[in-house]
Nucleic acid binder design. Structure first.
Lengths: 128, 128
DNA sequence: AAAAGTGTATTACTTATATAATACAGTTGA
DNA sequence: TCAACTGTATTATATAAGTAATACACTTTT
């Protein structure tokens, strides 16, 4: 069963998208693998204290992308292969880093400054 | 007059927030300084091809934060001091880097991998 | 003075996000 | 069998984001 232990909602980002990203990032990190079962919509909505329909929206998107498969009465499970994971990894990494670099450049930060700040902050947020 | 030449709308982020951030980041980068005048709401809305009320919302937020001052009939201009800029810089940098690190950690990326990816991508997006 | 520019305010509409309450259909397991 | 779980569907409501049209007050410029 896929875990949502470390899941922390971020304000300003739609929760259904955060659920989608949680799954995608887990696949990239190999903490989620093909065949893994997902918690039920009702269970997850109770765990995250959100509406079942919000979970349903996230699961529907994942199903439309072909990352999960759902069976009425039974449940949902991961359906993904390595080739797909590699593409998702590249896509997520590129988006995330590109946005941050664009932002820091707009702030007049140099490459070396950026690396310095990132290295310093990498350890700091270990426990939060 | 503050320039919006390099302004590129990012999908998924409210435009009024992007305008607010454009001003804040410009202040941090010192490309925008105290006393600079802003384009009028109507002019900027035409330039960015968005509704004047969307620009108004961004300007209202900036005014509520005390970063700009508006005079009816005349225009709007930047009102900010160095102490404020330092605080905004720390705030923006921290938020941006923290979010990226959190995301990359969820993807199982190591610190060294992250630095490598960022350094490589830093030059690549110079001309986009 | 008057036109043309400024900021500001109001109302209405569309879409997205999230919640809420039900209902129905299929599977599992005691 | 049947209760308890699954996924799925519908309808309604609330808030935020963004667009749209219009109006008014003020300042600048001619």
């Amino acid at each position: 069963m896929i875990s949502f232990e470390g899941f922390r909602a971020i304000e300003g980002v739609p929760i259904y998208l955060q659920i989608v990203n949680h799954i995608k990032r887990g696949c990239v990190a190999k903490t989620i693998v093909n065949g893994d079962s997902l918690p039920s919509r009702r269970y997850l909505s109770a765990l995250l204290r959100i509406n079942p329909m919000t979970v349903q929206k996230a699961f529907r998107l994942l199903e439309e992308e072909g990352l999960i498969s759902s069976v009425q009465g039974s449940g949902s499970f991961i359906t993904i292969d390595n080739e797909r994971i590699i593409r998702i990894k590249a896509e997520l990494l590129n988006d995330e880093i590109r946005k941050m670099i664009a932002s820091l450049k707009q702030m007049g930060i140099s490459k070396d400054e950026a690396v310095e700040l990132i290295v310093r902050q990498w350890e700091e947020n270990s426990d939060e």
